[in-house]
Amino acid sequence: MSSSPKARPLLEVKDLAQHFGGLKAVDQVNLTIHEGEIVSVIGPNGAGKTTFFNVLTGVYQGTRGEILFDGERVRGLPSHEIVARGMARTFQNIRLFQDMTALENVMVGRHTRTSQLLLGPLLRTSAFFEEEKATEARAKELLEFVGLKSLVNERARNLAYGAQRKLEIARALASEPKLLILDEPTAGMNPTESVDLVKLVRKVRERGVTVLLIEHQMRVVMDISDRVFVFDYGVKIAEGAPKDVVANPRVVEAYLGKEGA
């Protein structure tokens, strides 16, 4: 099920570039993502996909161009402000808080939607207790949503790999994002786990969250995506429905080289 053609644009990227000195990691990228879509970004290794995600989420400032998120200019904003505005992400190499429990990890994800600072906990106000309870409840609900209900009090470092990936997603969802950005969510997963994750991503979309992901497993890409963007050498070289993109000779060339096309 794809979004209706009239769905409003959530993320608009205009002429975006990220240069590191002479290296043009990302260059002249233009794309739009609409509310409710599931969009995949594919491309050979080193194509600039993760760098692109890093610019979107404020890890890099971007050298040129604009990023409009829900109509607001966000390029160059610090990461925590971008998260507050509704963009959350997971990482290529899982970055969980290893020695916190699964529950605590997700509770940290709630940070932008909560507000207690010093006085609340010091004076043990009722507002403080209420917020703590609500945070914990939300976190538990999210853990159940991703299928980790029984592992709530396990330390993150003790979780199986697939569970860790799901936990990262739960933590990202805790900030109530409009756009969830997943960086290679099925990396290192076997086919069963990948199918599981695809189901989860669909569930996330049903919750009303738009999803943007980098993905290498073509089966997953074909299965899940409404649209696909293809990156190569920092530039977007193709976009469209999955089956169209896969047949695009320029895309094939990027992956296999000229001889293999």
Partner: peptide, 15 residues
């Protein structure tokens, strides 16, 4: 504690 454990992840969690 999140900052101590992984500063980047903390930042990207909105801290």
């Amino acid at each position: 504690v999140a900052i101590r454990e992984d500063e980047v992840a903390a930042r990207l969690s909105g801290i």
